[in-house]
Simulated assay, not measured.
Amino acid sequence: MEIRYPATVEQQEDDSFLVQFVDLPDTFTEGQTREEALFNAGEVLSAMLAWRLDEAKDVPAPSQKVKGAQYIAPDAKTQAAMLLRLARGERSLSELARALETSWPAVKRLEDPTHWPSLKTLDRAAAALGKRLVLVLE
């Protein structure tokens, strides 16, 4: 699964660019150039999703095929936390900890968007959830 959120990019009267996320109306940013605005959008998206995860707030799934939208991915830590939480589904953290033969706090850190899990740990967690870890560089 790939996590990319659709956003609209609009040039403003002062020639700056405003980026607003379709699925997260309270998440927006701007930049003096289109490139700066899109870079800032990745940063603000990561921060907002991390906050929602930390606060146990609802994290909406990204809309697909939004006409004219620019799709933006959050940072790797936030994506990893979201993907593991989605893959875990209704399974408890304790169940995953037993499958990984580790502690509950260690598994809880895997869903913490401020934590950098190792690739080995992510791969083991994916396998325990019946998934496969796939990396993509852009």
Rank of each mutant, 00 (worst) to 15 (best):
E90F: 01
L93M: 12
W116E: 13
R4G: 09
L137D: 07
P113G: 05
E101C: 01
A7V: 05
D15Q: 14
A69K: 12
S16K: 09
T29N: 07
L96Y: 05
K77N: 12
K120N: 05
A126K: 01
P60T: 09
G89P: 08
E2R: 13
L135N: 07
T114D: 15
L110Y: 08
G42R: 06
D112T: 08
R4A: 15
P74R: 01
E43H: 03
V22H: 05
L96G: 03
V44G: 04
L53Q: 13
V59N: 02
A128G: 08
E101G: 07
A106E: 11
Q20C: 09
D112K: 09
Q32V: 04
L119C: 03
A127C: 02
K65A: 15
I72A: 04
A56Q: 11
Y71G: 06
R85I: 00
V134Y: 02
E13G: 01
V107A: 02
E111F: 03
H115I: 02
A7F: 03
L86F: 01
A50V: 08
A76W: 09
V19K: 01
V136M: 11
H115F: 15
E90L: 06
V107C: 03
S103H: 06
D75K: 07
L129V: 04
E95F: 02
L122W: 02
L45C: 09
F17D: 04
R4M: 12
W104C: 00
D26P: 05
A73N: 04
I3C: 04
F39E: 12
L110C: 07
L135F: 14
V19N: 04
R124V: 00
V107Y: 03
A126C: 02
T102D: 06
E55D: 10
D123C: 04
L84A: 05
L122P: 04
A7E: 04
Y71M: 12
Q20S: 15
L45T: 09
L93F: 08
S63T: 14
F28E: 08
V136I: 13
G42S: 11
A99M: 11
A47F: 10
F21A: 03
K65C: 10
L100A: 10
T33D: 05
S94C: 00
P60D: 10
A126P: 02
P113I: 06
Q12W: 01
P25N: 11
Q79C: 13
V136L: 14
L96E: 02
Q11D: 00
A81H: 05
Q64M: 05
P113D: 09
P113K: 06
